[in-house]
Simulated scan of single mutants.
Amino acid sequence: MTPEAILADLVACADLPGASNARIADCVLGHLRRAGLDPVVLPGPEGDRVNILASIGPRDLPGMILSGHMDVVPTEGQVWSSDPFRLTAREGRLQGRGTADMKGFLACMLAAVPDFQSAGLARPVHLAFSYDEEIGCRGVGHMIAALPGLVAPPMGCIVGEPSDMRPVLSHKGKQSTRLVMTGRAAHSSRPEAGVNANYAGAEMLLAIRDLNAALAAEGPFDPRFDPPHSTVVAGVVRGGTAVNIIPDRCEIQMEVRSIPGQAAAEVTARVLRRLAALVPAGAALSVAHEELSAYPALPPAEDAALAGLLQRLTEQQALGSVSYGTEAGLFHAAGIPAIICGPGSIDRAHRPDEYILPGELAACMAMLRGLAAELAG
């Protein structure tokens, strides 16, 4: 089948992160099995989600992983000119949720299976399909943990996030955290009888703002990124139930984006120290925190072999860094060299009328056929 035909099947599966991915998993498994492969289904601890791994070639030798996530972000609140879960050809574009991020790459992976099968691979290619990437790369770690029992140590991993088919060497890490401040409710006419959690939240918002300013002024810095330093922002604030009630709970959801060499947890720890300092001895205020999601940064590889391979296959110069995060950092942390390269543009991701171009799918297919030739040599 063509990548366009497979993409239509994938787009029709409207599985969102944080819930069952049975429809998209069944679709991927159907394509793999019809091609004669025997994929491994790796259930996640949630019980209703799976990762999938399919290998072509000798599993006992180091090979290359092609990795992509099956989940897509919701379309709620967006105005589309067509059904987002039906692939629509319009003005030369293939439009639908996930076409760029990143079912276009998944479609090419599946469409390239016959090319890998006919190439006589001396080293294997492993097709890896993960879940819940869009809510913090939660699924792929379970598959990475299972790899040593399934295949020989891989020589590298290509994560096919949309990069305009340009190899990308590095990205920032991320950690998001929920901060909770609990006070004591009271009637608003007697504020001294309560403990206002919103005031504690306001102090934390200012602390987060000031920490971000300090990171911008003091670093550390990495000029490959824009901005060239780690960042911390407060993205969600919830507090209070009515204007005449002293609020007894305030919640802040914050996010750190960290440059390679500075763990996101280091920045988060500075916020948590300030949070703990809100509570003097014997105070009625209490505080708590919870990690919501995290993934490590992807630093540029010390060995330039993988970047060189992708530059040859795509005929494009590698890009030093991107601002978005991917599962590549997790592969790197597991000792597997990783790089980002996939069809489509990140600028179209998560937006109404998301699309990919047929020419971009063709360029990805050419890269995968080139990879088949490399692995056969």
Score class of each variant (00 low, 15 high):
V267C: 08
R59Q: 13
A333N: 11
N212K: 04
R178V: 13
A100Q: 03
G261A: 02
H350M: 06
M181D: 07
D303M: 11
A372K: 02
Q316S: 12
A107M: 03
P3C: 03
L368C: 09
L272A: 09
S286T: 15
L42N: 10
C341H: 05
P296R: 08
R123F: 07
N21F: 01
L330M: 14
P39D: 11
G36V: 01
P43A: 06
A89T: 12
R33W: 12
S293N: 14
M143D: 10
V287H: 08
P191Q: 12
L215F: 09
M109V: 10
G104K: 00
F129A: 03
M165Y: 05
D101L: 05
A349T: 00
V322N: 05
P300K: 07
A328Y: 03
S118M: 09
C27P: 01
R90V: 01
R184H: 13
R273I: 10
L310E: 05
P260N: 11
A349H: 01
H187F: 05
R34D: 14
Y199Q: 14
I208S: 07
R238P: 00
A216T: 04
R249V: 13
H142P: 02
Q262S: 04
D353T: 04
R348N: 02
C27Q: 08
A19G: 13
P260D: 06
G156N: 07
Y295M: 13
L179W: 12
M204R: 09
R166D: 01
L206P: 06
R348Y: 04
L215M: 09
D71K: 07
S20Q: 00
G156I: 00
A186M: 07
P167F: 12
V279K: 07
G57H: 07
P162W: 00
A333H: 06
G173V: 06
P148H: 08
G120R: 10
L32H: 11
D9C: 05
K172S: 04
L278M: 12
A200Y: 02
V41T: 14
G325F: 11
L313P: 06
G370V: 09
A100G: 12
I52D: 08
R257K: 15
L313S: 06
G18C: 05
G370K: 08
L61K: 15
V125W: 12
F129Q: 03
M102A: 04
E255S: 10
E266Q: 15
A376M: 03
G141I: 10
A301M: 08
C364K: 02
D303N: 13
L375H: 03
G36P: 04
V243F: 14
P153A: 13
C108L: 08
R184T: 14
D353S: 00
N51C: 06
H187K: 08
R166A: 11
C157F: 10
A185H: 01
R166C: 13
L361N: 03
P39K: 07
A338H: 02
A372H: 09
L330A: 13
G173Y: 03
R224Q: 11
C137Y: 06
V73Q: 03
A216I: 08
A207S: 14
G98Q: 03
L66W: 08
R59E: 11
R224A: 15
A193Q: 15
A107F: 02
I56V: 15
C13G: 00
Q317T: 15
A119M: 01
M70C: 03
V125E: 00
G329K: 04
F221C: 07
E291L: 12
Q262I: 07
M143F: 14
Y199W: 14
H142W: 13
D9R: 08
E218D: 15
H69I: 01
V243L: 14
L215C: 09
A288T: 08
Y131A: 15
